[in-house]
Design a protein around this nucleic acid. Structure first.
Length: 697
RNA sequence: GCCACCGUAGCUCAGUGGUAGAGCGCACCCUUGGUAAGGGUGAGGUCACGGGUUCAACUCCCGUCGGCGGCUCCA
C-alpha cells in the first residue's frame, strides 16, 4: 500500500506496487503523456520503476517550455541519446567495442574502442545521425532487465567485451548485487548495452540531437592503457534549444581569445620561435603593460618591494629547492657548462651517462628557471633579518619556462614561457593569516576593477593517503588552518579539495572559466614551511636567537599570458578605455577637416593618451565601421560643423549613434579622468549625463 | 606524450593527378562624402617543410614541424 508524496506535499495512495508512470496517470493523462522519468526518494529512475513502499516522487517531464527544461529531463534524454548514437555507430562499424557513455552537464559522449575497425571520421557524422534518426523514428522502448552477478558476468564473458566486463566488475565491487542491461527494443532481439540507466521510456522521446565532435581518451584515464575514441554529442527537448546551443557555440568561438587576439593583433605565436612561446605584439603589449602597472601600484600600497632576477640559475639551486628532481620531466633540459661538456665529449660520455650524472649532481649546469622562488629566497638570504623587518615581501613579474606537454599547448592559456605576477612573503607564523588576507584583498580589488566576479576559490589540502608531500604533519595542519581561516573572511564561493596541495604546502587557487566553459586556474597562494628549511632561512627573534620564517608564494593572477587570455574573452576584446590598445580614434568627415582633426589628435596625444587618426580616403561610414571592428572605445567624428564650434561628435563603442557634440576641452578632461580613475569616473557621466545607455553596451 | 582531424594570398576559406581561385585587407586612381562597407585598377602564393610513387603531385603515400578537439599532466 505505497503512499506517494509529491513535491507539493500532497499524497496519493495505491493498493499495489505502483510506478512513476501510474502516479503520473493518476494525476492526469496529460502529465503521463509528457513524463519521461522520475526521482524516487531523490534518485533519478525509469518511468516504470516499481514502487513498493511509501516514497517521495517527482515526475520528470520533457515539456516545461523551452526556457526551463528540467535538468533531469536533459540527463535522461542525453544518456538515452548516447545509447542511440552507439547503436548507430555499431551499425556502421560492427566490430567496435563499447566502453562507457555517460550524460554530461552539457551533452553526452560515448567512449568506443575502434581497435578492430577503421577509425571514425567526422565526415561520417551525417551517416550516423541518419541511422540515429531511423532508430528514433522506430520509437523502440528502452527495455531494462537484470541478471544476478554470476549469470551477468557469464553473459559478458561470452560476449568477450573486456571493457564491459571491467565495468561490471567495478559495479559489483562498489556494492551492486546484480547487473542491468537496457535493450533498445526487445530483450534478445534488439541492440543492448550493459547500463545502470535510467532512460527515457522509448527512443521517440529523445528530442533534437547532434553529434558534435570526435576526440580520444584513455581507458580509465590511464595514458599507458588502451586508446579509445570518444564521440561527443548533445541533445535537447526542443530543436530551438539545440539551435540556440549551436549559435551560442558559434558566438563563443568569436569571443575565443585566439580569434580575438588575431583580429585585434594582440599577440602572435610563431612557428619559428617555438611552440607555446608568446610574442606580445604592440597592441597586446599595451594591455599587459597597463595591467602590470595597475598591479604594481596595488603592490606598492601593500608594502611590497620590487625585485628583478635573471632567467636562469644554477642546477644546484633547484636541487636544493627540490624542483629539479621533482619536476625534471616538465623542464627545459639544463644548459651544461661548455668546458665540462667538451671534456665529457672527449671522454666519449654517452647521452644516458650524461643524463645520469646530471640527475645525481655530478655535473653542473644552469636551468631556465621554472619558478622564481629560489632567486627570491637567495635575495632574502643575502642579508640578515630581524623579526622587526618581517614580513619581507619581494615581488617580481618573473618569467619562467616549463616544458609543457606538446599536446597541451595552445593560445595564451597553456604556454611554455610565461610571466607570473609573482611574490614571496617571508613572515613569522602568526603573521600568515594576515598576509593571506592581504593577498585575497589584492585579488578582490583587481577583479572588481576589471568587473570579473565569476570566479571560484579552491583550498587545496594534502591527500592524507599520499606520500608525495614533504614536511611535518603539524606544520601542514597549521598551514591548512590558516588558509581556511583567511578564505572564510573572503566573500566568495569556495571549496576544499584534498589532494590539490602543492608538494610543499597547502594552497588557495582562483579558478575562472573561459568562454568555452573550460575552467582555468589563474592565481594561487601557497603556504610553505618547507623551502625555508631547505635553504636554512632564518630571522633574529626577540630573544636574540635564530628562528625559521614561513614563506608564502603568491601569484594572484597566475601568469600574465593566461590572465590576459581570460581577460580578452571576458571583454570579448572590448577593453575598458584605460586598458584599450587604442583609446580614441579621430575620424575626419573629409580631407577638408583634416587640419582640425589633426589638432584634436595632437592635443590628446600630448597627454599620453593612445589616439590615432583615420586619414583614409573613405567615407565616414567606412571609418566608423573599421574603428568599431577594432573595438576602439571612443570615436571622435569631426566635420566642418565641429571644427567651427571647436567641438567633437562623440561615438561610444557599442552605441549605434553618436552621443552628441561636446566642447573639445570638456571631452579631453573627461577622457583623462576616465583613464586615470580606471573607469570609476566615466566620460558618459561627465559629458553626457542625460544620455541613456544600456549597461552592457 | 597519446588518439583523431587539419595546414592553399596578410585574414577567412573554395578547389583539382595536367601552369592556382574568391571575399576582405593592402597599393594606386576617381570620388570630398555627417554616423557600421562609394567606385575603378593593380600587386600579392615554392599550395607548411622533407622524402617517395608517377610521364606529371598542391592533390596519392611516408616522415617532420605547426594548428585544432579531446585524453593525460600542470610547482
Amino acid at each position: 500500500m505505497p503512499i506517494i508524496t509529491l513535491p507539493d506535499g500532497t499524497t496519493r495512495s495505491f493498493d499495489t506496487t505502483t510506478s512513476p508512470l501510474q502516479v503520473a496517470e493518476d494525476i492526469s493523462a496529460g502529465l503521463a503523456s509528457v513524463a519521461i522519468g522520475a526521482r524516487i526518494n531523490g534518485e533519478l529512475c525509469d518511468l516504470n520503476t516499481p514502487i513498493e513502499e511509501d516514497a517521495q516522487v517527482k515526475i520528470v517531464t520533457a515539456r516545461k517550455g523551452e526556457k526551463e527544461t528540467d535538468p533531469d529531463a536533459l540527463l535522461l534524454i542525453r544518456h538515452s541519446c548516447a545509447h542511440v548514437m552507439a547503436e548507430a555507430i555499431q551499425r556502421i562499424r560492427p566490430k567496435t567495442e563499447l566502453v562507457y557513455g555517460p550524460a554530461l552537464e552539457n551533452g553526452f559522449y560515448y567512449d568506443i574502442s575502434f581497435e578492430n575497425e577503421e577509425p571514425l571520421s567526422s565526415d561520417e557524422f551525417e551517416a550516423i545521425e541518419k541511422e540515429m534518426k531511423a532508430i528514433i523514428e522506430e520509437n523502440r522502448p528502452f527495455t531494462r532487465y537484470e541478471l544476478d552477478a554470476t549469470t551477468g558476468l557469464e553473459k559478458l564473458e561470452k560476449e568477450g567485451n573486456k571493457y564491459k566486463i571491467d565495468n561490471a566488475k567495478r559495479a559489483l565491487e562498489t556494492g551492486s548485487t546484480s547487473l542491468t542491461w537496457y535493450a533498445t527494443g526487445e530483450k534478445d532481439k534488439n541492440w543492448e548495452d550493459l547500463c545502470k540507466g535510467p532512460h527515457v521510456p522509448s527512443t521517440g522521446r529523445i528530442g533534437s540531437y547532434k553529434i558534435m565532435t570526435i576526440a580520444s581518451s584513455y581507458w580509465h584515464g590511464d595514458a599507458e592503457s588502451d586508446n579509445l575514441t570518444r564521440v561527443y554529442g548533445n541533445a535537447f527537448v526542443y530543436s530551438k534549444q539545440l539551435k540556440a546551443y549551436l549559435k551560442q557555440r558559434e558566438e563563443a568561438k568569436l569571443r575565443d581569445h585566439r580569434t580575438v587576439g588575431k583580429n585585434l593583433r594582440l599577440f602572435h605565436v610563431d612557428e619559428q620561435v617555438g611552440q607555446g612561446l608568446v610574442l606580445w605584439t604592440p597592441n597586446g603589449a599595451v594591455v599587459r603593460q597597463e595591467l602590470q602597472t595597475f598591479i604594481a601600484e596595488q603592490l606598492q600600497l601593500q608594502g611590497y618591494s620590487q625585485v628583478f632576477t635573471p632567467h636562469i640559475g644554477k642546477l644546484d639551486l633547484y636541487r636544493t629547492s627540490g624542483h629539479y628532481p621533482y619536476y625534471q620531466e616538465s623542464q627545459y633540459p639544463p644548459l651544461i657548462d661548455p668546458d665540462q661538456l667538451k671534456r665529457l665529449s672527449d671522454e666519449g660520455c654517452s647521452c644516458s651517462e650524461l643524463s645520469n650524472m646530471m640527475a645525481k649532481g655530478d655535473i653542473e649546469g644552469y636551468l631556465l628557471k621554472p619558478m622564481n622562488c629560489p632567486h627570491h629566497i637567495r635575495i632574502y638570504a643575502s642579508s640578515p633579518h630581524s623579526y622587526r623587518d618581517l614580513p619581507v615581501r619581494l615581488a617580481e613579474f618573473g618569467t619562467v619556462y616549463r616544458w609543457e606537454q606538446s599536446g597541451e599547448i595552445g593560445g595564451l592559456t597553456r604556454v611554455r614561457g610565461f610571466t607570473q605576477d609573482d611574490a614571496h612573503l617571508f613572515c613569522m607564523e602568526d603573521q600568515i593569516a594576515d598576509e593571506i588576507r592581504g593577498c585575497l584583498e589584492l585579488v578582490k580589488v583587481i577583479f572588481a576593477t576589471l568587473g570579473m566576479d565569476d570566479y571560484k576559490v579552491r583550498v587545496g589540502l594534502r591527500d592524507p593517503d599520499s606520500d608525495k608531500y614533504v614536511g611535518e604533519a603539524s606544520n601542514w595542519d597549521k598551514a591548512e588552518a590558516a588558509c581556511r581561516e583567511a578564505v572564510e573572511s573572503l566573500d566568495v564561493p569556495w571549496t576544499e579539495d584534498a589532494g590539490e596541495a602543492a608538494f610543499y604546502g597547502p594552497k588557495i587557487d582562483f579558478i575562472v572559466n573561459d568562454v568555452l566553459g573550460r575552467p582555468w586556474q589563474l592565481g594561487t597562494i601557497q603556504v610553505d614551511y618547507n623551502l625555508p628549511i631547505r635553504f636554512d632561512l632564518t630571522y633574529i627573534g626577540k630573544d636574540g636567537g635564530h628562528h625559521r620564517p614561513v614563506m608564502i608564494h603568491r601569484a594572484p593572477f597566475g601568469s600574465m599570458e593566461r590572465f590576459i587570455g581570460v581577460l580578452i574573452e571576458h571583454f570579448a576584446g572590448a577593453f575598458p578605455t584605460w586598458l584599450a590598445p587604442e583609446q580614441v580614434r579621430v575620424l575626419p568627415i573629409s580631407e577638408k577637416t583634416n587640419d582640425y582633426a589633426q589638432e584634436v589628435h595632437d592635443l590628446i596625444h600630448a597627454l599620453g593618451i593612445r589616439v590615432s587618426m583615420d586619414k583614409n580616403d573613405e567615407r565616414v561610414q567606412a571609418k566608423i565601421r573599421e574603428a568599431a571592428n577594432m573595438k576602439v572605445p571612443w570615436q571622435l567624428i569631426v566635420g566642418p560643423r565641429d571644427a567651427e564650434a571647436r567641438q567633437v561628435s562623440v561615438r561610444m563603442r557599442g552605441i549605434r549613434h553618436d552621443l552628441g557634440a561636446v566642447d573639445l576641452d570638456t571631452f579631453i578632461t573627461a577622457l583623462q579622468t576616465e583613464i586615470q580613475s580606471r573607469g570609476k569616473e566615466s566620460i558618459l557621466e561627465n559629458c553626457f549625463p542625460d544620455v541613456d545607455v544600456p549597461k552592457d553596451a
